[in-house]
Amino acid sequence: MSAVLGYALELCDAQFGILFAYSSVKGFKATYIKEIPLAFQTWLTEQDWFHVSPNTGLGRMVSDKDIINIANVRMEEIYRHGDPLRDATANLGGARSFTAIPMVSKEGLIGAFTIYRQQLRPFEEKSLLIARIFADQSVIAIENARLVSEARSAKGE
């Protein structure tokens, strides 16, 4: 998964990215990171699993199950109100532009690729559509790994 995240960063010409696991009960957890600033990485590690406001990019992605593309993370109302995730994204990560790409299986949302630019430059639609293909392929890989694990458990391995 780390390699796929790296490809998405390269494709989208972004500085850093995070692959989040998602649980409707537990919330989000950063499971893979690539090139993330240390202060933001430390903050995410301290959070472990965490819930997000419905007004954050991840929160909107949970309800919409669609790509969220934020041109300027500091210009949204949620930043001015001191949301912890947005504050960490902008101030600890130095992010200016952000996109969240949902990973959706038959059961629903299972995670997200989040990709960040430290300069103010929105992500292009073409790049996001290709990144969505990466996310969809990751869902297939995760589902296959789960099925293999279940088959091994059934056999007693």
Rank of each mutant, 00 (worst) to 15 (best):
R60Q: 11
R86L: 09
N69D: 14
L109R: 15
I18W: 06
D66P: 01
L129S: 08
D66T: 04
C12K: 02
E10C: 04
A90V: 07
I115T: 03
S149Q: 13
E77D: 15
N55A: 08
I70A: 09
T56C: 06
I78C: 03
I18H: 08
D87E: 13
E157K: 09
D64E: 15
R74T: 15
P102G: 11
V25D: 08
R146F: 06
P102Q: 10
D48M: 00
K34H: 13
S138N: 12
Y79N: 06
H51A: 03
E125F: 10
K155A: 13
I101R: 04
S105N: 10
A100K: 04
Q118R: 15
S63T: 14
A30G: 03
T42A: 10
A14E: 07
L9M: 03
E157W: 11
V62W: 01
N55W: 03
A14I: 06
E143K: 06
V139E: 08
I142V: 14
E150M: 06
R121E: 12
A95M: 04
G111D: 01
N72G: 05
H81F: 05
R152S: 10
L129Y: 06
A95Q: 06
M1I: 00
A131S: 13
L129N: 10
L58P: 00
R74L: 09
A95D: 06
K26R: 14
L128I: 09
K65Q: 15
E10K: 09
F40P: 04
I110A: 13
D13I: 08
A3C: 00
L58S: 04
D13N: 14
H51D: 01
E157F: 12
G57T: 05
A141M: 09
V73F: 08
S149I: 02
M103G: 04
